[in-house]
C-alpha cells in the first residue's frame, strides 16, 4: 500500500506593498529567497527597502539589509523621502545593516581560494541582534565585480540562500540586468536562486517611462501572469496597480423596471434589472438604397 505524506503547501508572507499582495496571490513565498531583477533605475533598491519598511510599519517584523553597493548612510538619506526613517529603526533595534559596500581607499588582493564565511557570520549576527524575519540583499552585481571570481561567488551566494532558509527568513536578493527584455540577470544569478523571480521594468515608451513588475515564477505556488504597472509615490514608495484584481465593491440591484413589452419582461424573468446595461443583439435593420 502506498502512503502519501502530507507536504505543506508553499506559505506566503503578505509584504505590505500596495497591490503586490494581490498580484502575487498573497505575498512572497515565506522562508524562501526571491530574486528581484531589473535594469539600472528600475527601483530595485526601493523595492528591497520597502519590503523591510512595510514589515516594520505594518507587521512589526524586523529586518536586515545587506548592502553591496550603496553605503548605509546614502540609503538612509535617499529613503527619507518615502517617510522611512531607517536610522530611527536602527536605534529601536528593528533594522540592522550589514555593510558590504566598497570602502574608500580599500585595496584588495585575491591570493588563493576563499569563501564568504565572514559575510554569512555577519548576517547571522545581525539577524539575531534584531530578531529579523525579513532580509534584503542589494545588489548582487557589485560583489561579482569586486572579487572577479563568478564561480566562487555563485556557490557562496547559494550557500547563503540555503542558510537564510534554514534560519526561517523570507529574503529578497536584487540583481542587475542589461536589457528590459532578454536574459533574466547578469552573472546567471537566477541559476542559484531559481525558485522565485520578479522582474522590474522601466521601459521608455513614446518618450514616457512606464514602470512594470512581472512575477516571472514562484515555484510551487500561483501568481498573476504578465506585466503589472506600478508607480513610485513620494511619502509612500511603490504602489502597484493590479489591473485585473481590482475588487468590485458595489452590490448589484434587484429592482426591476419594465421594458414596456410584456413578452420581453416575461423572457427576462420578470423585467429589466435597474442600473444595468442590457444589450439586444439581433440582425441590423435593412438598409434601403
Amino acid at each position: 500500500m502506498i502512503t502519501l505524506k502530507t507536504i505543506p503547501v508553499v506559505e506566503k508572507l503578505k509584504i505590505g506593498i500596495p497591490g503586490f499582495d494581490q498580484i502575487s496571490h498573497g505575498g512572497l513565498p515565506k522562508d524562501r529567497t526571491t530574486l528581484v531583477s531589473g535594469t539600472s533605475g528600475s527601483a530595485k533598491t526601493v523595492f528591497a527597502v520597502q519590503f523591510l519598511a512595510s514589515g516594520i510599519q505594518q507587521a512589526d517584523q524586523h529586518g536586515v539589509f545587506v548592502t553591496f553597493e550603496e553605503s548605509p548612510r546614502d540609503i538612509c538619506q535617499n529613503m527619507l523621502g518615502f517617510n522611512w526613517n531607517i536610522q530611527e529603526w536602527e536605534k529601536q533595534g528593528k533594522w540592522a545593516f550589514v555593510d558590504a559596500s566598497p570602502q574608500v581607499g580599500e585595496e584588495t588582493i585575491v591570493a588563493g581560494k576563499f569563501d564568504l564565511g565572514a559575510l554569512l557570520a555577519r548576517i547571522k549576527h545581525a539577524v539575531q541582534k534584531v530578531n529579523a524575519s525579513r532580509i534584503s540583499l542589494d545588489s548582487l552585481g557589485a560583489i561579482f565585480t569586486k572579487f572577479n571570481d563568478s564561480n566562487t561567488i555563485r556557490r557562496e551566494l547559494f550557500r547563503i540562500a540555503t542558510a537564510l532558509k534554514a534560519m526561517g527568513l523570507t529574503a529578497i536578493m536584487t540583481a542587475e540586468r542589461t536589457q528590459e527584455y532578454g536574459e533574466v540577470s547578469r552573472f546567471g544569478v537566477e541559476e542559484f536562486v531559481a525558485d522565485n523571480v520578479i522582474v522590474l521594468r522601466n521601459v521608455l515608451d513614446e518618450e514616457n517611462r512606464r514602470r512594470t513588475m512581472e512575477v516571472l515564477r514562484f515555484r510551487g505556488t500561483s501568481h498573476q501572469k504578465g506585466e503589472m504597472p506600478f508607480t513610485i509615490v513620494p511619502g509612500h514608495g511603490i504602489i502597484m496597480i493590479p489591473l485585473s484584481a481590482i475588487e468590485i465593491k458595489q452590490t448589484s440591484s434587484s429592482t426591476r423596471v419594465t421594458s414596456g413589452s410584456p413578452e420581453l419582461d416575461r423572457m427576462c424573468g420578470g423585467a429589466f434589472i435597474a442600473i444595468q446595461f442590457s444589450s439586444y443583439p439581433g440582425p441590423p435593420a435593412p438598409v434601403r438604397r
Binding site: V98, D99, A100, Q103, G105, E106, E107, T108, I109, V110, A111, G112, K113, F114, D115, L116, G117, A118, L119, A121, R122, H125, A126, I143, F147
Partner: peptide, 26 residues
C-alpha cells in the same frame, strides 16, 4: 568582522606599515 567590514574568509589585513591592505584567500 562587522566593524572591519570583512566579507571573505580568510582575509589577511596588513595594518602596519601603511597603506592598509587586504589579502583574500588561502
Amino acid at each position: 568582522a562587522e566593524e572591519d567590514k570583512i566579507i571573505a574568509t580568510p582575509t589577511l589585513v596588513k595594518e602596519q606599515p601603511p597603506p592598509v591592505r587586504r589579502i583574500i584567500g588561502d
